[in-house]
């Protein structure tokens, strides 16, 4: 909520300053803003429906069962795949991760889940393709996936 206020506030201040300096340029800026939004709108609408579908098919109890403390590397791998294909709003992701821990998930597996959730985004790839192309997109997500394994190992050792 605070974040929303801060960002709308920043945009409002920016717009006011811009308007004072040049009405013409502000008009162009708003047109560009709309164009940038319009560019990702079609993919975006598809993505939020896909997220809704994935999240309603997976429940915390189901996830905890497969990434339990004794699930080892298989569990880490499964957790990473789940983290990669889901896109959970931030304010829901951490309570969910905490709930998974309470339901019996291991720290190593949760580390992999949280890290891939942040760094790897399979469902947002259509938008990423538009700006970075396929090669860079696969590269970035691939490296994020491998790096998340590393995070999992460190979490497993330290926690």
């Amino acid at each position: 909520m605070i974040v929303t206020i801060v960002f709308y506030g920043l945009a409002a201040i920016g717009l006011i300053v811009s308007l004072i300096k040049s009405k013409e340029k502000t008009k162009i800026a708003l047109k560009k803003a709309w164009k940038a939004f319009d560019n990702i709108l079609p993919q975006f609408l598809g993505i939020i429906l896909l997220i809704g579908i994935i999240l309603s098919l997976l429940t915390p109890q189901q996830i905890s069962q497969v990434i339990g403390e004794d699930s080892g590397w298989i569990g880490v791998l499964i957790a990473s795949v789940i983290g990669s294909v889901t896109l959970i709003p931030g304010f829901l992701a951490f309570p969910l991760a905490a709930a998974l821990l309470d339901n019996g998930a291991g720290y190593m597996q949760i580390g992999a889940f949280v890290s891939t959730l942040m760094m790897v985004g399979i469902v947002t790839m259509p938008v990423e393709f538009l700006y970075f192309g396929k090669k860079a997109t696969f590269l970035r997500n691939g490296m994020g996936f491998v790096f998340s394994m590393l995070v999992a190992v460190v979490m497993g050792v330290l926690l």
């Binding site: 945009a11 920016g14 717009l15 047109k31 803003a33 709309w34 809704g52």
Partner: peptide
């Protein structure tokens, strides 16, 4: 869940795009 995502998006994306437009121009 989809409606939740739309509201989450309305919370931050519109000002971000306005800022992108301003940055582009200024």
């Amino acid at each position: 869940l989809t409606v939740d995502s739309v509201f989450e998006m309305l919370g931050v994306l519109p000002p971000i795009f306005v800022l992108i437009g301003l940055l582009d121009v200024w």
